[in-house]
Write a protein that binds this DNA or RNA. Structure first.
Lengths: 265, 265
DNA sequence: CGCTATTTGTGCGTATGTATC
DNA sequence: GGATACATACGCACAAATAGC
């Protein structure tokens, strides 16, 4: 049984040259590249569903295992999302290469959590009204876990932020850990449930602090605040958690540094 | 051979309940958490090799496929590395050092410039006073080029920002191009002088818009604004340009998206 | 409303290739 | 060369979410 020097196991001798020359690249990588090309050239436009795994098996003459491995590569790059019972949806084309890279690690992004105390003032289930549903991208009326409170820096007496955290009900059990562990909520969810946060969307705007909030934050009514909303998504673009923080302008500023990606090694 | 009535059967009732309630989590997640715990509690110190996949199969009574899926979770978090012919090596206790990468390209970062008009209201040399010297990190009394104006989006009548640009005198000649070319100032400098911007530092804070500025921006006095300062540096950490933008809160919000860097190939 | 078909998710078994020691 | 360990690939089965009838 000497047939070829290819790494892939058994398969038909003729059916895979349709992807690329006979380099010793794993089968699933070849399939992934074919799919990426389909997306890049708009044969699979954004928003469309890829063929089902079964169909791709036939198309490439590969097993489902191999096809899934290929799709996983696309998923990790954020090109597609998968949904059970629905299919695999194209979300983006191959990303531009002139990307910048933040010098922040995720740890930096929420580093302040370690040096701060979160004092919760309430927690419970809420039904998503219009505003919330839009903010977290869920169905109207869905029930989410909400924890609200204030965050203090070090030994400071004055709060650095009013905070409100919405947690996907799937992970509601972490609620009991909040305030106990000095760890960001998203990290708790990661470790407790084995999910992995793959994207953080952040929205920053300025607001005039409302009277009620001004009182709690102990700032003058009418002063400015930084309203920061962070949405944590998993690889499937599912919202895991949404955190909203209202910072008094004189107690918080947002600094970041973007660096050109060093030339690829 | 009746063995499983349920595919994700938790065979052992006791081997994973570290903190959270015993939700019906997939088997490979349970195994992954058991392994993470082993690492966290130094039963598997950094540098040690995990048991082989085969051994883990026996230990957890799972198939190799399932065990590999579990190890994959650890690998994605950077906790372990695998090497063919060697084994799976523990590299870290916590999933911390995960760098993120912005999905913004430099182009996106100042994309709005292309769709906006900059109307300059003044330009000239200024001597750096204390505030400016601190902001751009230059010596007190040094002369910099300053251009101020307002930026309008599309055909909008209302300005989207009050803007003030300070240019390193080395590159002062680009002044004449401002307002003519619809290109960010930093791009002009890059192309005119052949320097390359390698870092952008951004600082975002909330302010109450002062009366004078409120009038120019045509917003109510006392409303909130987003004050964004961007410093463009070359590879030598020399400041090339500092741009300060004051955006009315209701006309501008800052959105960004951070994505996990894909696992190193 | 429940039922069914479809589609991805989880899990099992097995075989072979390839790198390392 | 041989033994070991991970990598790739085939197959099958059932679970769970979804959509449509």
């Amino acid at each position: 049984m000497r047939r070829r020097s290819r790494p892939c196991g058994k398969s038909k001798p003729s059916d895979m040259a349709l992807v690329s020359p006979d380099i010793a690249r794993p089968r699933y990588v070849q399939i992934a590249q074919a799919l990426i090309e389909d997306i890049a050239e708009a044969r699979q436009p954004i928003g469309s569903l890829l063929p089902t795994e079964h169909a791709l098996c036939r198309q490439f003459g590969a097993s489902r295992h191999t096809v899934r491995e290929a799709i996983r590569l696309l998923q990790e790059r954020g090109l597609v999302t998968r949904q059970r019972g629905v299919g695999t949806c194209v979300k983006a084309v191959q990303s531009d290469n002139r990307y910048v890279q933040s010098t922040m690690s995720i740890a930096d992004l929420m580093h302040y959590v370690e040096d701060t105390r979160l004092v919760t003032s309430g927690a419970g289930e809420v039904m998503a009204d219009t505003a919330l549903a839009k903010s977290i991208g869920c169905a109207l009326g869905q029930r989410w876990m909400r924890v609200s409170g204030m965050r203090f820096a070090g030994a400071e007496k004055l709060p650095m932020a009013l905070t409100e955290i919405h947690i996907n009900p799937l992970y509601g059990a972490v609620r009991e850990l909040i305030g106990v562990l000095k760890v960001p909520v998203c990290s708790m969810i990661e470790s407790q449930y084995g999910v992995r946060i793959s994207e953080v969307q952040q929205d920053i705007r300025a607001v005039v602090i409302a009277a009620v909030d001004a009182q709690r934050l102990q700032v003058k009514p009418g002063s400015a605040g930084l309203l920061i909303t962070r949405r944590y998504l998993d690889a499937n673009a599912q919202v895991i958690e949404v955190a909203v923080n209202l910072h008094p302008a004189d107690r918080f500023a947002y600094a970041m540094s973007l660096r050109l990606r060093p030339p690829a090694a």
